[in-house]
């Protein structure tokens, strides 16, 4: 892999690290970028026993068949994106391993495994008003009765396409967005957060905030 200092995430130009705080205090919306997370597109028919078995072997869990749900482990999990489509999310720079494992396990099946890590980034949102700020741009009902940890949905935020993934009951959400829309999405969300108070946190703080609240759930 390339030396990390040579790489730029889609939001690097906003100098978020320079704005990051250690303690978000009373901010109603707390946000940060999760950089270089591994993301692999997996396509195949879950009703095909060879595919199902191969995917399970490679991932260590079966990709979820219930629409708009997430399954897996803490460091690698799969978001349902369609009846034959998942997004496998993992720790930074694990995409090559995941692609290789899936391709090996699915050789001979009609399946597609594609590294899409570099095409998207993740904006993590948490805080007391995380739901309110998402509601300003996204038509999905995020009420706990309608949505919750382990759920995902593809939708829109304002004029960008996003994948929403709720991680815990804090609530914490990951918004996956195409890298070319990341600047727009970040600015729209920060603008929408004005009335709630907005804080930027770096990844370690993000993770710490999340650990403090919930011992389980995908990270």
């Amino acid at each position: 892999m390339v030396e990390p200092y040579l790489r730029q995430s889609p939001l690097d130009h906003l100098s978020l690290d320079a704005r990051a705080v250690g303690d978000p205090g009373g901010a109603g919306v707390v946000a940060g970028e999760r950089r270089f997370i591994a993301k692999v597109s997996l396509r195949g028919d879950p009703a095909d026993p060879a595919f199902a078995a191969g995917a399970k072997t490679a991932l260590g869990f079966a990709p979820p068949v219930a629409p708009n749900t997430v399954d897996g482990k803490r460091d690698r999990y799969a978001l349902w994106l369609g009846p034959d489509e998942w997004l496998v999310v993992g720790a930074p720079d694990t995409q090559d391993k995941t692609v290789a494992a899936l391709r090996a396990a699915l050789a001979g099946c009609h399946a597609a495994v594609t590294d899409v890590s570099e095409g998207r980034t993740i904006i993590r949102l948490t805080g007391a008003h995380a739901r309110d700020v998402i509601a300003k741009g996204c038509p999905i009902d995020l009420h706990p009765r309608a949505f919750g940890p382990g759920r995902c949905a593809q939708s829109r935020y304002a004029r960008a396409l996003v994948i929403l993934h709720q991680l815990d009951e804090a609530p914490t959400f990951d918004l996956h967005v195409d890298r070319s829309f990341a600047d727009y999405l970040w600015r729209v969300i920060e603008d929408a957060s004005l009335e709630y108070g907005f804080a930027v946190v770096a990844e370690p703080v993000m993770a710490a905030l999340k650990r403090r609240r919930t011992p389980q759930g995908q990270d």
Partner: peptide
């Protein structure tokens, strides 16, 4: 709403934009 000014329409930027 807030779909005004530079939020009216997304500006897509390549990784080399800056």
């Amino acid at each position: 709403g807030r779909s005004v000014g530079d939020r009216f329409d997304p500006v897509r930027m390549t990784g080399l934009h800056q």
